[in-house]
Amino acid sequence: MHKRNESVLEIRDVSKIYKTKGAFFGSSGKDVTALNRISLDIFKGEIFGLVGESGSGKTTAGRLIVGLEDVNSGEILLDGSEIVGLRGRAQKKFRRKVQMIFQDPYQSLNPQRSIYDTVSEPLKIHRIGDASTRKDLVRETLQSVGLSPPDDFLFKYPHRLSGGQRQRVAIARAMILNPEFVISDEPTSMLDASISAQIFNILLEMRNRLGVTQMFITHSLAAARYLCDRVAVIYRGNLMEVGPAEEVIRNPKHPYTQALLDAVPKFGHDRDAKRYGSLLIKDRDVDKDAGCVFFPRCAVAHEDRCGRKQPGLAQLGDGHFVACFLLEAMHEA
């Protein structure tokens, strides 16, 4: 197991708000809160899972960390130093340390550039090695992601490769700089199950062999359970539950996590038996922006308490945090 409490990445109170454009006249657009005061620590050598549905803000979180978008407030620290708003040389240095693997391998490789061009690009950008050492490094990296023999792939173009092979190329591109921290944003959602398992195992090996700290963004609790040491469940920009993966999935405390687990199709068993039943059949009508974000759909909520204030994350057990008034009350009692 990894060493505890040595944070590689610290996210402190980060918020991201998108301003939507209003109608043609005036700027009466609504603001959409993608992330609402998120705080997280990611420890050295772990794979941290960020689980949520579409629109939960999980992708935004990844994009903020790699600096593809700017935070509205809060700070993100890598190895203790601020990485928000880096420019110039400092930014370039940061780019060597943090890499990202994107969701759609059909879109994330430039169709006009060969596999060698794509994988060696980070080396060229950071002026590492000369032509021949670069070529060796590219070969080695391709081999390590299971594209072998690498010479078969070097001068191919993406359209000749299958989805799984393309995603391996994308992983090779992210890995070639030997980064400290890699974010993968749903890297297998476009791939078949048997190919996904290949990709999962490559990511696991990256951690086990090279000790790369990772953040794995996914909608699938099952994938998170398989891959991650710790997970955070995010719903509409708010963290609902954070804890060790097995603990959160086997023993979920937040009604939302429970609802997610209830909804996962199980192999051939009676579906009517919901284990938790924490999801309302019909949403509550509530005033927006007050109370818990899950309150409108929560079957176990207290009308008076949950509808008024937003609960914060509270520690429940060893490293298991839950944002829910019901558990707070239970814990206090």
């Binding site: 398992a197 290949q198 195992n201 099952a222 398989y226 999935i249």
Partner: peptide, 23 residues
Amino acid sequence: KALLSSFPTVTGKKSDLIPIPGE
């Protein structure tokens, strides 16, 4: 068999996924 063992699950014992090699 291979397909079944390449799917991660949320229930039961956590076991290694065995990917199907090749394409």
